[in-house]
Design a protein around this nucleic acid. Structure first.
Lengths: 340, 340
DNA sequence: TACTTTTAGTAACACGTGTTAGTAATCATT
DNA sequence: AATGATTACTAACACGTGTTACTAAAAGTA
């Protein structure tokens, strides 16, 4: 009925005929203490024989460390549902954590009731927090930061000095739009990946604007429509864009998923891609190579982002100083037929 | 420098002028002990004032419970990268866990070195395990099961009596193929979602076979090609299928993502969908509505699967008897233009 | 009043670990 | 041979909590 009794370090000590302290010294390879080769071997054998592994609860209690990081996802459910980008990021985080012997606690939080995750820290469940999709209005976040809780953001929060890792989305967007300009387009629309109160949407819009300005092309607010992560939002936005501006010859859609909807709208309008309207996406999801036509897009280092975030958070937890507190990862243009 | 000292139940006790025991009784609402209304109020106020929350490490140590479940993902990295189904499942798990006050520890494991997750249990990190994508050859899993560790599978392992939740993939596949048969197709190929040593691939194949037999159509092994989660594998499989069998008028692809590649192959062969070859997918990922043409597919209750898995695992952990140990969720046909 | 029951609370232990301070035995040095 | 240093270990404490066994006072009962 009841789960088989756990084997403790005391059991190992008894079997190896030494004190519990010695067991701890040996298994943790504590530097500066001397243990004879014979007893070391005896203890290791005993540990293996009993299949001993230390109880994290006890260890956590005395050390104050939980060797767990909290991965907080502030994205809306729609984004989590549709975002093909996220799994790669998560995988990267997990990989980095595992390399350092850390675990990952996953916590999606409703963007509206942000801050419910603070309990993870106060209850000592996790040693630090990796926050994906931070929001400006997150009061709990600032509170934790003041309490010197190790925090690493994935995404930026301009007004703060909380360290972050992020993809250089603005540069990526500029890359995308410059690519269109180089191919002779002068009337280029944009559909954002998300509503504009998300910083990730702002950055991409800024890159779009910067590329236009650099080429001395006019920036027209009516040419920018907002998506909300879903293909359906891309479909609606594209329809509106075509209707408002018949001179349109190209569109930058700041999310491949949203672009999928936009492409459908273009086809339904009887226009050809890329001959009538060229399309460039953003994210390089695994499917975009198989779009019809294959989608030119910006490849983001998703796995690398997660990895860097996890690795740097753990360094922070362990008290190592980061030589530069934040990190911007660069992206690459993947040219395919939708813009050529 | 050092993180502000934690407030413990001792601090609360001191402020409220009572013993630590009393604090514990009140905050945990222990039944059967009598506490005057006055002191109860005093303690609650003190706790609130000090912003006290109990340290899980201490609690875990004495109770043996961690109020955490381990979500083990045995999928290969390719699948995790491309599987749009997974985020919804994870969200469901988290939701169910949260409702019961549990946390979710995420652990992707390499399918080759399965069993690395056993440490989560022996180290007492988690109270139970929710295993997505179980493999037949997973010795560590059986070992844990014998030790009476609470385990819930997402997906089935035919030879065992470990409780599971799963989607009735066989029935879903049958639905898909029957739909094609009803529309007059007699020469129907199949591309699996994964190599055939995955049970999820077997189940879908079995549904395909069953539908053919029911309609007294011949089953031809050469008409079944294996995919491996990626669109590229669908592309290759479809090319092979067309080459081998020119009479083909329909194909059932047991994954929307893989279907995306198959669709490209069909178009490149100069064939039209659905006039020359009808296509039915599986999963109903958010994008499939926006495929060209929109993809007929089987919708799975992804969120519900995760939710049920989490909820039932927690019931298991808490010692509740499940009235039926396992659960099969049904799926729905979503007819769209790719088969009409 | 004398006895029992209920109320309101506490002291002390257990959980399993890491770590500091200390102790005997052995070895090296003068 | 006497002293000091090193080796090889151990006893005891601390971490923060839940819980059992107990007590002293108050209330109820005969």
């Amino acid at each position: 009925m009841r789960p088989a009794k756990r084997t403790t370090s005391r059991d190992v000590a008894k079997l190896a005929q030494v004190s519990r302290t010695t067991v701890s010294f040996i298994l943790n390879n504590v530097p500066g203490v001397s243990i004879s080769a014979a007893t070391r071997k005896r203890v290791l054998n005993a540990a293996k024989k009993l299949n001993y592994s230390p109880n994290v609860a006890g260890r956590k209690l005395v050390s104050g460390k939980s060797y767990t990081i909290g991965l907080i996802l502030c994205q809306s459910p729609e984004q989590i549902f549709t975002d093909a980008f996220l799994p790669q990021v998560i995988l990267g985080v997990e990989q980095a954590a595992m390399q350092q012997g850390f675990h990952v606690l996953l916590k999606p939080v409703d963007p509206n009731d942000t801050g419910g995750y603070a309990r993870l820290i106060t209850e000592n469940h996790v040693d630090g927090i990796l926050l994906s999709g931070p929001r400006q209005d997150d009061a709990a976040l600032m509170q934790l930061h003041r309490q010197r809780v190790p925090i690493m953001l994935m995404g930026q929060l301009p007004e703060t000095n909380i360290p972050f890792v992020d993809v250089n989305a603005a540069a990526g967007a500029e890359l995308a739009v410059s690519h269109l300009i180089e191919h002779g387009h002068e009337c280029i629309g944009m559909i954002t990946n998300a509503p504009l109160d998300y910083t990730s949407a702002q950055q991409r819009r800024d890159g779009y604007v910067k590329a236009l300005k650099k080429a001395k092309l006019p920036v027209n607010k009516a040419m920018i429509k907002a998506g909300n992560y879903t293909p359906a939002s891309g479909y609606d936005a594209m329809k509106a864009l075509i209707q408002v501006n018949p001179r349109l010859t190209a569109v930058f859609v700041a999310s491949d998923v949203v672009a999928m909807g936009a492409i459908l709208a273009i086809k339904e309008a009887g226009l050809r891609i890329p001959q009538d309207i060229a399309v460039v996406g953003f994210d390089d999801i695994p499917l975009s190579e198989f779009f019809d036509p294959p989608l030119t897009t910006i490849r983001l280092p998703a796995f690398g982002l997660g990895w860097a975030g996890g690795e740097r958070l753990i360094r922070l937890i362990q008290g190592d100083a980061l030589n530069e507190s934040s990190l911007l990862l660069e992206s690459t243009l993947i040219p395919r037929q939708s813009s050529l």
